[in-house]
Write a protein that binds this DNA or RNA. Structure first.
Lengths: 232, 232
DNA sequence: TTCATACTTCGATCGTAACCGAACCATCTC
DNA sequence: GAGATGGTTCGGTTACGATCGAAGTATGAA
């Protein structure tokens, strides 16, 4: 019928549980094979193959074949942003799919959101950056200050290199577990990469949660202090 | 399966064509009755009733009964924001549902996006406000300048009244037809209301397009001039 | 009270799409 | 080559949900 973009089409793509599982798995940022995605989705390989074809045709997924493997990723940053948005909304309406296993708390503490840090730690990091004057929050947007640029250079992040990127430097992303914003954009990505490179934290195998080593956690908390206690 | 928000649930809510039509119709900002929504969706009243119940249970719709009518609206601003996001994404992937009738061009020129102005005119307005220094765009966020506040006061908009609102004053919203940002937030809403009150423009009956009178269009263009030609 | 309008609930039908078993292609190893 | 692994295609089954006719409830009008 009539006018405008077809939201039903992409809604139905996301609306199938198996496909939603696939997309959620790919929010981990890694490229995954069809077989891995099949187990993540809880379906057989044939079924997953059909789903993957649909998602790719719909422009949500990109694949690149490497030998006899087919690696799938989210098509681009726009897909990640879309899924973030839907996740935030779903969480705000209480549409969770709790299975409060042991993984739950780890996920709330620190997890990967497409390519940047989310969860308690992610929110804390942004709060601290704003409090210290490294990032200024105007309205809904975030921007890096000159002070912040030197601060980040000390950590070992080359901001000017990131600026040349077409992607926005700072973006705020609504955290579904904390229900507050954390830092996305190329800077958010660079920070997480930095922590992983330094060995402060590492990804876990079959989950989106991020594991901080004791030493890494100590350093992270020292680097991003919070003046005020958590008075939300 | 496992962890996190259930995006499949809301995906499937949006994924049905009839429900998508209902939601799109409600993006017009008006409260509509079940019967109106049924015709908008192209289904019978019984079917629409079932859909409306599901949408309400899912937290997307709010209803208030008035006499023997039941008026439905989007549940809150969050739903509008979500749908905007999905529309922008769908358009970016070419998921349109063209029926290039006579309504098409009018819709591209000026239409309502939940509660603010979108389309060519909406994008122009924001561009002009930025060019004139009334709004500053930092990163992805927008913020009103002191100069802009006096500028808007001259038009007849009480910014301080809007600030007391919990809702953000300026928000950028991706325009699916222009593929660029236009102004949302309480300020975007106030501006559109202002145009309608002054009689510069009016809503059309069964469409989201906004009709500008010749006089109103002249004034609008004079109020929001563009220095540069449209060199995108 | 009666009739009309707005909407919901029930029941039955029907289509589509998700699913898997089995067979088939492709790539790597030995 | 033969065997193994990763992935797709095909065919048939199944289940779910969208749909509408018909009957039922609520509100308003005459």
């Amino acid at each position: 019928m009539k006018e405008g973009p077809d939201i039903a089409q992409i809604g139905s793509l996301i609306g199938d549980p198996a496909r939603a599982n696939i997309l959620t798995a790919l929010m981990g940022g890694r490229a995954l094979t069809a077989t891995e995605l099949a187990t993540a989705a809880g379906v057989t390989l044939q079924t997953a193959s059909a789903h993957l074809a649909k998602l790719e045709a719909g422009g949500l997924l990109a694949q690149r074949k490497q030998g006899r493997h087919r690696y799938f990723t989210l098509a681009d940053d726009g897909v990640g942003k879309l899924l973030e948005g839907i996740m935030g909304f779903a969480a705000s309406r209480g549409h969770l799919r709790y299975r409060p296993g042991p993984k739950e708390p780890a996920l709330r503490k620190a997890r990967i959101c497409y390519d940047h840090l989310a969860g308690d730690f992610g929110v804390r990091m942004l709060d601290s950056l704003i409090e210290s004057g490294s990032i200024s929050a105007l309205g809904e947007g975030l921007s890096l200050t000159a002070q912040g640029e030197t601060h980040l250079a000390a950590i070992g992040i080359d901001v000017s290199g990131l600026r040349s990127n077409r992607r926005p430097l700072c973006r705020s992303c609504l955290d579904w577990s904390e229900r507050r914003a954390h830092l996305a954009g190329s800077l958010g990505k660079a920070l997480l990469s930095n922590f992983l490179e330094k060995g402060w934290a590492r990804r876990t195998e079959n989950s989106r949660s991020i594991f901080f080593t004791p030493e890494g956690e100590r350093r992270f908390l020292a680097l991003f202090p919070l003046e005020m206690a958590d008075t939300v």
